[in-house]
Design a protein around this nucleic acid. Structure first.
Lengths: 225, 225
DNA sequence: GCGTATCTTGTACGAATCTTCATGTTTATA
DNA sequence: TATAAACATGAAGATTCGTACAAGATACGC
């Protein structure tokens, strides 16, 4: 059973919260409740280790859309929106603002848990092919890279080189080592090739690039600053 | 009106069965009655084309929970449970066993028909296998595609290729990968084939086509812009 | 059997990338 | 501090890769 997965449920109706909480608790998730948008933001800001947020749209004080927008300013946590009627306009609005899913009330527990599990499966899977270190994170599947949260475009070889550095973080890598692992096994090219690629990588990664250190007389090392 | 949709109503009280049957018949559904759990199972086993089962909990011989559990062993047909009192424990038990909805007696015909229609709408909607992403939506059943709402005519291979892209959105796909999945497994054709089809897809999808990104030295990726 | 739509292949060309090389800069060491 | 070795940088050539276009091959309906 899924353990240690935390879900935040935000709804002003106690009954609805309890209902959702119960279903999810049965499934083994750890559920926290918030009664309005402000409370939700407070809770999430002080502990952003939640894997998922289930957010009602209609709430007093601060409605779901506003909460969604606020959270999206600093977090990519998956968010499921709950709304009263399946109006397509709302659905579109939600997706535009960055909602991951959309469940219209009334819903069955099957629907709820199915969507929750689908989303968590997706995000967990994403985590497994994501490598993060020192502000740099790479996604093998999507072949994407971000440095300090900013997307970076890398060429194929640059990506492979970075991947190798990150797999061997904090380890000094000789040029031979790098050549035989990132380049073809029987490639006997110039060692300066690496230098050039390292240079490009450092430039493209900006501030994070400084973490690719030169080990004089040896090679390179990717080390958190 | 919904025609040909069959609903099985299971209750030991004749009056209750007739009541439910009448409401649903008025709404145009085809209703079959069963007087106890065993009869219900018999009927459903010999004809599992029912779209929905409405199941009373309190019944002699075989109560609703048992019927629910038995049916869930082999079918995912939507099931609404009827119980005398809205006890939360019961509600949870029902959901745990795989009930889709829960109506407590006494109920108004409005409640009944509303829940029934909600469930049917949901299950019908689930059946329509549409994939939507980045302004493009495809319908597998109808084999139709729209880009930004505009219908697009695709050839068979083009459709399959788009479908594969959408199933693997945000993932970089190598040519080998695409070839072995969209084309026959043992197809060893020219990689140019993919290029050509991608080109056609991009053209036919118009603005949306730009979302099929080229990963240089790697392959392609369908990514929301 | 014929014609049309679709799929596949081949080639030429331009563009992105990789590699090399020449030159300038930094580092270690005597 | 002088010197040589190692590294960084920038530019240019070589290579690989992607695209466009066209023509051949195949499947399909009439």
């Amino acid at each position: 059973m899924e353990t240690n997965i935390k879900i935040l449920v935000v709804d002003d109706e106690i009954r609805m919260r309890k209902l959702v909480r119960d279903f999810l608790t049965i499934k083994g998730y750890s559920v926290t409740e918030a009664g309005d948008g402000e409370e939700a933001l407070e809770i999430f800001c002080s502990d952003n280790s939640y894997s998922l947020i289930i957010l009602d749209v209609m709430m007093p004080k601060m409605d779901g859309w506003e909460v969604l927008r606020s959270i999206r300013k600093f977090s990519k946590v998956p968010i499921i929106m709950l709304t009263a009627k399946g109006e397509e306009a709302d659905e579109l609005k939600g997706f535009k603002l960055g909602a991951d899913e959309y469940i219209s009330k009334p819903f069955s527990p099957k629907i709820l848990t199915a969507r929750v599990e689908a989303i968590l499966k997706r995000t967990q899977a994403e985590k497994t092919d994501t490598l993060s270190f020192g502000g740099v994170s790479i996604n093998r599947g999507a072949h994407t890279v971000t440095a300090d949260g900013v997307p970076v475009e890398l060429s194929y070889k640059e990506f492979e080189l970075l991947e190798y550095f990150m797999q061997n973080k904090n380890i000094a890598l000789s040029r031979e080592n790098i050549l035989s692992n990132v380049w073809d096994y029987d490639y006997f090219g110039d060692a300066r090739t690496i230098d050039t690629h390292v240079k490009k990588l450092r430039a493209k990664l900006g501030k994070c690039g400084e973490q690719i250190k030169t080990i004089w007389g040896m090679g390179y090392k990717f080390e958190e600053s």
